[in-house]
């Protein structure tokens, strides 16, 4: 029963983050200094979640991002799934509870995610986001990510209990 609650919680959180990203935290209003709540959420899933359906939740989150941003379907879906799998693989080799690990995880995950999209798109079309902008977003995600991790972890612990 607990597992079902956890899956429901993650699905609802994923949906909530997509809604917040398209309203209050839309890059249309905030520019490059917007926190990518969905990426932070996928990093959380990759580092901490023990739920087996997490990969599908990460994929679904990316799909919703693709639909709402008018992007090519698959761009965010596959980059987020890929990020999740890499983090899941690495999470057994690192101490994920450490703040330093979380900071590095958030920063590098943003770079990884953009790298994936950059190489994928560069093969077909222009990519207008500069390296400086990607670095700026990595910093913002790291700063916003830590308190968000704390919030989701508390919620996760309550559902697990």
């Amino acid at each position: 029963m607990n597992r079902l609650y956890q899956i429901i919680m993650f699905v609802l959180l994923s949906f909530l983050f997509v809604i917040l990203q398209s309203t209050f935290f839309s890059p249309k209003h905030l520019g490059i200094f917007y926190p990518d709540l969905n990426l932070i959420f996928v990093v959380f899933l990759g580092l901490f979640s023990e739920v087996k359906g997490s990969a599908i939740i990460a994929l679904g989150n990316g799909f919703m991002m693709d639909v709402l941003s008018g992007n090519l379907i698959g761009l965010y879906s596959l980059s987020r799934l890929s990020l999740f799998l890499v983090l899941k693989g690495l999470s057994t080799h690192v101490y994920a509870q450490s703040r330093i690990t979380q900071v590095i995880g958030l920063f590098c995950s943003t770079l990884f995610s953009w790298g994936f999209i950059w190489i994928g798109l560069k093969m077909r079309t222009d990519f207008r986001i500069s390296f400086g902008e990607i670095m700026a977003q990595s910093f913002v995600n790291t700063i916003v990510g830590l308190p968000l991790f704390w919030l989701i972890k508390n919620l996760y612990a309550r559902v697990q209990a």
Binding site: P27, K28, S69
Partner: peptide, 15 residues
């Protein structure tokens, strides 16, 4: 206009 794009990659989209 009730929302905007959640992605900087294509930010010139509104809902």
């Amino acid at each position: 206009v009730i929302a905007g794009s959640p992605s900087i990659l294509r930010s010139q989209v509104v809902i």
